[in-house]
Design a protein around this nucleic acid. Structure first.
Lengths: 336, 336
DNA sequence: TTGTAAGCGTTATCAA
DNA sequence: TTGATAACGCTTACAA
């Protein structure tokens, strides 16, 4: 199967290549007749345009890149990432863009990969999912004036195109809710502090306690968003008897589940003795028993908005992006 | 920031463009000195190769496409897909390939999108995840001699490059195991019959009952791999009292969970009254109570193998692909 | 070991 | 309304 090119079509139809090209782009200054003829010939010959050749001259790929700065294993274990991809994929599909996926083993690679994608002209813009601060990468992108959108928050700079939820406020609100429900001593269970959303949630937690209660904040950090880590951490904490709490706010569903199990295994019951709250609203957590109370993030929508924003930046000279903050929802189930 | 091209480097280094090109491909018939000079100049000027231009002449994109023939919503709700993507992404990353993701709303589109990806020369090969039979697409790919690998099984043709598990055997084995454990009346809970893996699992189930027991097969079909569907289906079944069973084998974890809950809500206990078994081993199912017994598929590995096979097909003239069948594992937990 | 020149399949500019 | 012709940035014979 040889490739049918625009020249082949031109020759067969007895017109010039540029005419064929114009027919493809449906130029209005071409006669109906010629159009019909050329289209017929294209069909007969089985012509399909070559995206690569077109990109070379138009200087655009109609492709956006998604770079995920986590080891794939970690990245995909958490449904957050599939949700984001789902949202992005739906929009790119609809807007006739392609999606190039790039997951890097670590940090360093994130930067390299992103820059490579850009400099090699494979994509017109990128969506970043680095939840830690990677200021240098952002700086470079800004400096190159390369179109990008960040999912999450950029710690160091203002005015970066982002899609995020208001972690500080959201956490504040759930703590407030717990206090109103009568919980006196609320602990927090956080992932690694280097994640910006962990910092933000911790801040909202502290703020709420500071303003609305008179208890000292108690934040447990664990090394990874894993069930086992959370389980061990919370269990050790309970065993040490060092401090008491009647509610625990986990910064992620998976570790909320670990905490839940630790509490139960220690002999307490949820929510009678200790309440548990998570973050994300992974589909699965509504099916466990007791069903998890959690903050639902509009994950898919975050992906959609990021893709929409990037595509708009790409096509609208005057649009430079914005900071979109999406609302979340408290899903009260059985663990409170 | 203007693009630095090979010509700019050539001019600055005082050599010809082809020399620069040769340095880039590290040709061995170029002097050490020239190489050093050219590399230095590239660095100084900040040269990066243009992948598009290179592709146009080499006729390869070093990109593979992943086409998912499900509505994105459905596709991503099931961790199966993220696992597959994870596996593929890891391999493409390592082998310096790019991954182009394309999720289509339905069937028809799957075919169109795949063909477009190919004819437009955006990718060198594709990985298909259509779990229903889409014979026409396969036929076209074969006819075009276009490199592809199928994850799943092709119902109609032999000799198609695939990665899969042996669903018939795997189901046979778990049914056998249940019978040996003393369960007398084992029901099956299947998704839509159009999915080939459902057909295969049903066949393994029937075969086992036929050879090892003297009970009639009892297969419940539901319209979708959703918790609610399974929940309602099983609950209705139990209420109708039409037929009894002491074990239920679900062809997916999510619907196993639905069945589990239905059984419990009806007032039976698991596994004392009825055993429940799932398929996949979604990370979450080990954390519910009672922890789900399930068949673990090597999902990530399936993605990896598919990517490896495709890349091998792409680079080895003599290799046409094969049918890889990966082993599964029974994970016995608390629901049996 | 290096340079010249053709060509990959398009689109875009300028004439006609 | 159409056709030449020149890019786009690279690789690769073929020469030197």
């Amino acid at each position: 199967m040889k490739n049918v090119t625009i020249k082949d079509v031109a020759k067969a139809a007895g017109v010039s290549p540029s005419t064929v090209s114009r027919v493809i782009s449906d130029s209005h200054r071409i006669s109906k007749e010629t159009k019909r003829l050329v289209r017929k010939t294209m069909k007969e010959l089985g012509y399909h345009h070559n995206a690569i050749a077109r990109s070379l001259v138009t200087q655009r790929t109609d492709t956006i890149g998604l770079v995920m700065a986590r080891p794939t294993r970690e990245a995909f274990a958490n449904p957050f990432f599939s949700g984001i991809i789902q949202g992005i994929a739906a929009v790119t599909q609809k807007k006739h863009y392609s999606l190039l996926l790039s997951s890097t083993a670590d940090y360093r690679e994130e930067q390299e990969e992103t820059i490579k994608l850009i400099r090699n002209r494979r994509v017109d813009g990128v969506i970043l999912m680095s939840s830690r601060s990677n200021d240098e990468l952002i700086n470079q992108l800004v400096q190159y004036r390369f179109p990008f959108v960040l999912i999450g928050r950029c710690a160091e700079q203002e005015g970066i195109p982002t899609v995020n939820n208001d972690n500080i406020k959201d956490t504040y609100n759930i703590v407030k809710f717990l206090l109103e429900r009568g919980y006196k001593k609320i602990a927090a269970l956080s992932g690694p502090e280097e994640y910006i959303f962990c910092q933000d949630r911790a801040q909202g937690y502290r703020k709420a306690l500071d303003e609305l209660a008179d208890t000292e904040p108690l934040i447990m950090f664990i090394d990874d968003f894993k069930f086992e880590e959370a389980y061990q951490g919370v269990l050790n904490y309970l065993k040490s008897g060092q401090m008491r709490f009647d509610a625990i706010l986990a910064f992620d569903d998976m570790i909320a589940l670990g905490a839940l199990r630790a509490i139960q295994d220690y002999g307490f019951s949820v929510p009678e003795d200790i309440a548990v709250v998570g973050f994300n609203d992974d589909p699965m957590v509504s099916y466990i028993k007791p069903a998890l109370t959690t903050i639902r993030l509009p994950i898919i929508k975050m992906g959609e908005e990021a893709a929409k924003m990037l595509i708009k930046i790409l096509n609208d000279e005057n649009y430079k992006g914005e900071e979109i903050i999406l609302p979340t929802e408290m899903i009260i189930r059985e663990t409170v």
